[in-house]
Design a binder for these strands. Structure first.
Lengths: 182, 182
DNA sequence: TTGTTTGTACAGTAAAAACTGTACAAACTT
DNA sequence: AAGTTTGTACAGTTTTTACTGTACAAACAA
């Protein structure tokens, strides 16, 4: 086999694997393919470059590169003389993994905590009232306990994300050859 | 407002929040609603109970409860005299979070590592050949470096999942009031 | 055995998401 | 200023996913 072909095949295998697994980041296989292609492309790319490389519409390239950028998987780049927007893959994948949690999970945790605290306070207020039905009292006690459990759990998750963001996780699980970027 | 209504509203808020965020587990809002409903239902439920509660087809209940069970969010339960399958929400959410990684992320990590190792060994083999084009040599060196980076990263992720599974993560981020279930 | 109940496979339909092409606003060029 | 270039909003289309109803195999009951 020709050397160029071998390299191409080796790349394609990786790109396709990324495409098939990027759903864990909430992205589509196309966005994964885009990311993979960009990873092996050693220069920043414009939207038109991506259209060229992947044979998809510029609109698609625009929306998915934005999705990739929102998750901090790619970033804007600058090159003198080039007017078009340029994008490249972020080179710190460890940080990108952490960013996933900062962005997607943190938001979810926060929404849960808001809802739980609101429901909890409503039920506690109701519980304090007098002359409640026995059946209702029991339901209240059970529901409050469940909500407290949820609150503790999401507060734990929140601290877990803190531990990622603060890089404390690297003490527990040290990366090999990890050099903090800039 | 009537007490019963207050409780119902408090529950609905939580259930809807879960439904809107369960996509992080790769599940649909419907499955999230099902999970939420089951959480506040203090008895194990049959598929027919769920159909009743959620007004959806039994087929849907069957497929989504299976999806929930695959992620270890719900489990089968037994009650004497009941012939139908019974399901209930698992009561250890910390463990469920860990299971998410064991199940979804571990699989993805493994697929990536297989692909990376295969591509890496192909390129290394090619690199060992004689009389290679200068341009190709350079490409090879760059791609090999990228693949090595990926390998290190996914091996780190793998160890991270180990740290979850082994509960070492609880040393770094201790849960409040966490009692290991059985 | 025959009759019933229960879960799910499968095919069809409804709903949602991904993708494309057009159109245009904003930024840049001359 | 007028003329280009560039990214994206939006409407329409295609593709995918979620959901339903029927049909049936496996388990159980009589």
């Amino acid at each position: 086999m020709e050397g160029k072909e071998t390299v191409e095949k080796a790349r394609e295998r990786i790109i396709e694997t990324i495409a098939q697994n990027i759903h864990l980041y909430g992205l589509t296989p196309s966005a994964g393919r885009q990311f993979g292609m960009m990873y092996f492309h050693n220069e920043p790319l414009t939207l038109d470059d991506m259209t060229e490389e992947l044979g998809m519409s510029k609109t698609s390239m625009s929306t998915s590169v934005r999705a990739l950028a929102d998750l901090k998987l790619v970033e804007r780049a600058w090159k003198r003389g080039v007017r078009k927007d340029l994008y490249q893959v972020k080179d710190d994948w460890y940080q990108s993994f952490i960013d996933l949690f900062s962005i997607k999970w943190r938001r979810s945790i926060s929404l849960h905590l808001v809802a739980v605290r609101k429901s909890l306070s409503e039920l506690e207020k109701l519980q304090a009232e007098e002359g409640l039905d026995e059946q209702l009292k029991e339901t209240l006690a059970i529901d409050i306990e469940k909500l407290e459990y949820m609150r503790d759990y999401f507060e734990w998750l929140d601290r877990l994300v803190d531990a990622f963001e603060d890089h404390d996780i690297f003490n527990l699980v040290p990366p090999k050859n990890y050099l903090k970027q800039k």
